[in-house]
Every structure is written in C-alpha cells, then in structure tokens.
Design a protein around this nucleic acid. Structure first.
Lengths: 193, 193
DNA sequence: GCAGCATCTTGCCAAATGGCAAGAAAGAAT
DNA sequence: ATTCTTTCTTGCCATTTGGCAAGATGCTGC
C-alpha cells in the first residue's frame, strides 16, 4: 500500500475531506514488524499511533497474579496504540506485539498533535477512533460479565474468525478470561454437537 | 455549588486556565434529579454532558438474556454521559439513572462542540475525560476476566465504598458480574473471617 | 530426519458460581 | 401500626470453570 491508498482510507471514513486525508497521509511513515516483535513494551511511553495495514497483533498486560492476559486483538484496518499511555504520556502497563509479520503506517504523538492543530477535521477522526474503541470495550465488558465462556468464544468466532487462525490458544483463552484447558474443552464439546 | 466553584473545579484539572474555566462554566446549566429519575433512557440520543456534583448514579444496559446489567457507577466529581451515543449521535443502548437525589451541571452536545471550537484548551479536558474513562474500563475488564468475584468485590469496596451505601445489592452484583445470591454469600463468608 | 520445545487435548477431581425457593429483614405507603 | 413490596440471606443441589499432570500433536532449527 502507498500513501495515496492510505489517504483514501482516511477519507473513506467520511470524517475528513480528500485533501485533508492526503495531508495527513503524508505525515505517516511506513512500518514493518516481524512476527513476535514488539511495537510497545510495558514501562515505556507509547509514542506511535499505528494504522495496521496487514497482519495481526495483540496487546497484553500482566494481571495481579503475574500472568499474561491478552487485552486486545488487532486486525487490519485498525489503529494500534495504547490509549492511556499515548495521550497521558505515562508508562504503559501493556505490551503490544505482532502475532504475524505486520505492515502499517504510523505517526508520533507530536505529529498527531500538530495535525490536530493544523487540521481540526482530523480531530474528528481521532475522536472517532477513541469513541469506537471505547464502545467496543464496553461491549466486551458486558459480555465478559454476563455470558458464559462458550458464548464469548462463539462471539469471537463470529466477529473475528481470522484471529483464531493467527493466535495460539492460550492468547485466545486469556482474552476470553478462561484457561487454555477450558477453551480446549469448550471446542471439544462444540465439535461433538 | 455555584458557577464560580464549578470553574475552579475545571481549572483544578490543570487542563484549562482559570479564565477559560470561567467561560466554560458560564455555559453549564444546573440540573437536579430525584432518586430513580432518568438522565437518559435506552433508545434516545444522549445530549447531556453532565458534571455530577452531588449524589450517585448508575448506567445500565440489558444483556442478551434481557436482564439489567449495571455497567457504571458514578460518584460526585465525575462527568456523566453515554460516550458512544453522545459523540456518535446514535441511540443509546444504555440507561442512566439517579440512585439518590442528585445535583449537577450540564451542557448539550451543540454547546460542547461550540466550546471545543472557541476554546481549543477545552478539547484537552474533553479528551482527558474520554481517555481516563477508557483506562478505567480497561482495568475493570482485566479484573472481570482474571479475578474471582470476591476479589472484584473487595476492589470495589476499597475504591468506591460509598457506592455500597447507595446502591442495592442486585445492582452491585450485576456490576460485578454475579448474581445477588452469590454476592450475599460472599459477604456472609467475608464477615465470618 | 531428529531432538527439543511449544501447543493442544484429556482424565480426574476441586472450587467457584448459579438456580430456585423459602423465609427474614428493612422500607415505603396508607 | 399495618400492610405491601423490595431487599437480603440461606439451604439444597446443578453447572461451569479451574488445577494438575500425562500424553499427543505439531513446529523449528540443525
């Protein structure tokens, strides 16, 4: 993908005009990540606002017991960054890692703010990214506290089947809030139906 | 509380100057809610951006099984509104209700945007509200999928003990993702220790 | 091809949580 | 004060999920 296509993508959200989208896209730099490589490690300040073009990524944190918990899976087309660390300039509690070889485009916090300043339209884009990920987190929260593990697995299967091809079972299990053992059993039970 | 005190509060976030805070506060209108009264009902578009000055509120949604699930508790000092509905101008899936008699100050979506436009500093305030609630949702998500019900109850007890005084058990239970029966048992077990 | 390691499955049993229903306690309305 | 309603607790048992360990499968590097 080239910058022109990137601009098209920004424009296709209907949040910015094509000329604005072009100015924005000009600021982004191309980025490649190899499988297992980190975009962000815990303790650092997230400074990259990445548009994921190809590949799959995950964010994970350590819970109080010290176990790795996958908090988010990223698929192509999404913006990848750690919201709190990026905007509050605080040390991230999370890591962001490539599940497969990845390609994308990123800008830094400084650049993002400059764009926000010179192109107020772009703020709408930024806000939209934030609001939408907020909403999807709330939905996941709701499903986490009201649905069974099997139901949550089925939702994921429905909404993001590609993830299952690219992430090992244990990551999916921790994302769903269960152990890999339980997930394996759930799959076994489902295949018997 | 008067507008001057409200301005002080905005200013004390260190995100806006005192004069900006005054201009902002001038736009807010006072609001009173009686216990059980709704600020927002599902199906409507959230159009009030409310600073909660006194009292306690909750947001709740219906899960797929049709049961009420409390998604958020609000305590004095917080901004109360449904993020996705307010910013995307979509019908809210959630209800926001007063748990006790409440007082606060609100502006509409239109006013908020005008302020964002005339006082770019205020955008920082708006972004901060969004980013911080995002972060706290993520933490709750993490605790929802990795901690036991008892641990989650203890966290709530520690972080928001006032809530327990003002919300009935069933709301707290659904917020924690368990039944009121289970929560009652957890409390019984704890008091025996 | 083979050693070594990570991944996935399965059996056995334990712990956590839920469902239902009865009753106790507390509040609200008259 | 009495009644009515909501809230909270408890007993009995079912279901869901976890912990541990063994084995099976598959991938990676040499």
């Amino acid at each position: 993908m080239n910058r022109e296509a990137l601009a098209q993508l920004f424009h296709s959200t209907n949040l910015v005009s094509l000329s604005t989208a072009n100015t924005i896209a000009d600021q982004f730099e191309h980025k490649q990540l190899l499988k297992n490589q980190y975009l962000l490690t815990a303790g650092k300040i997230c400074d990259e606002y990445l548009f994921l073009e190809q590949g799959y990524m995950r964010a994970f944190a350590q819970n109080t017991a010290g176990e790795e918990v996958t908090t988010t899976f990223y698929v192509p087309g999404q913006m990848v960054f750690e919201v709190a660390s990026f905007f509050n300039r605080t040390r991230s509690k999370e890591n962001i890692q490539a599940l497969t070889d990845c390609e994308g485009w990123f800008i830094t916090f400084k650049q993002l703010n400059e764009l926000f300043h010179t192109l107020p339209e772009f703020r709408e884009f930024g806000r939209s990214v934030l609001v939408n990920s907020f909403a999807s987190f709330k939905n996941r929260m709701l499903s986490a506290i009201t649905e069974t593990a099997e139901e949550r697995y089925l939702s994921l299967l429905k909404s993001n089947p590609e993830i299952l091809q690219h992430a090992p079972l244990k990551h999916i299990a921790s994302y769903l809030g269960i152990t890999d053992t339980s997930l394996s059993r759930i799959r076994a039970a489902m295949s018997k139906k």
